[in-house]
Amino acid sequence: MKTTFLDFEQPIAELEGKIEELRAMQDESGVDISEEVERLAEKSRTLSNDIYAKLTPWQSAQVARHPQRPYTFDYIENIFTDFHELHGDRAFADDTAIVGGLARLNGDPCVVIGHQKGRDTKEKIYRNFGMPRPEGYRKALRLMKLAEKFGLPVFTFVDTPGAYPGIGAEERGQSEAIGRNLLVMAELKTPIIVTVIGEGGSGGALAIAVGDEVLMLQHSTYAVISPEGCATILWKSAEKASEAAEIMGITAGRLKGLGLIDQIVEETPGGAHRDVVGMAKNLKQALEKALGHVSGLDHEALVRRRIDRLMAYGAFDEVAA
C-alpha cells in the first residue's frame, strides 16, 4: 500500500517521491545510482525524525488517526500467537468495533481485547469506525470474566473516537455497559495491561482502559473529548481543534508528566505506521515489562493496588476543614 502523508509530512513526502523517481529511473536506465538513493533515504529518515521529534499535540492527534496506523489486529498478529477470536455478547449481537479472544504471549495463555477500526471504506463501516455499541463493551466484559475464571492476564488495546452515539446504543444501555465495565475492571482478579495504540476517545476508550498498568504509544492520544469537540464547545468552531489539543493535554508525554499513564512506548521513526513489525516488537517488550510489574501479586494485593491507583487520580487543593 502506498504511504499516505499528512500535511506536516509534506517535506518527507517530497523526498520519498524523489527517491521513488530515482529508483524507477535506475530500473529503466540500468545506471547505478544506488548511492544517491541511499543518501536521499538517509536524509528522509533524518527529516522524519526531526519532524516527529517535535510534533504538536494536534499533529499527534493526526498521527494517532493516521489511515495506515496499526490497529489491534495488526498487533495481535505481530505480538501474540494462537489467537482465537471469540464473538458476541450472548445477549444481542457481535459488535465488530471491539474484537477479542484467547491467545498466547511468548507461549503464555492470555486474553486480548481491543477496539478495531477498518482500513477501507467498506471495512470502516463494518467496524463502525471503531465506535462500539453496548454489545461491544459487554463482549469485552464477558472476555474479562473468562480471563478471571482461568487466571489469564488481559491485554487491552485502545483505539476509538468514542462510544457510538446512536439511538439503538442508547436504548440498549450504552451508559450502563460502560459503567459496568469500569466497576468490573476495578475489581477483576487478574492482571489488566492497557495500551492506547491510537485514539483514546473518552468514556468509549476508558470502558476497556481500567488496568494495573496503562501504556501509551508515543504518538497516540488520550482525552476526555476530541480536540474538535472541545473546540466546538469552547470556541464554537472545530477549526480551533489545534488550540484545543494544546490546552487539553492529550499527548503521551503530557499525560505521563501528570501521572495519568505509566509508560510511553517509543514509536518507530516516522510513526508506528512506517514500520508495523518494528513497532510491534517495541510494544511486545513494553507489555512484558508491564506484566512483570504485577504478575507476582496475589489477587487481593493486585486488586488493592489497582484500586489505590484509581483513588489517587485527581488534582485538587485541600483547605483546613
Binding site: L183, A186, S202, A223, V224, I250, L255, L260, G314
Partner: peptide
C-alpha cells in the same frame, strides 16, 4: 465530565465507580 480538567476528569469516572 469537566472538560477544563482534561483527562483528570475522565479518570473520575473510573475513580468514583471503583
Amino acid at each position: 465530565a469537566r472538560m477544563q480538567e482534561g483527562l483528570f476528569s475522565l479518570m473520575q469516572m473510573a475513580k468514583t465507580t471503583a
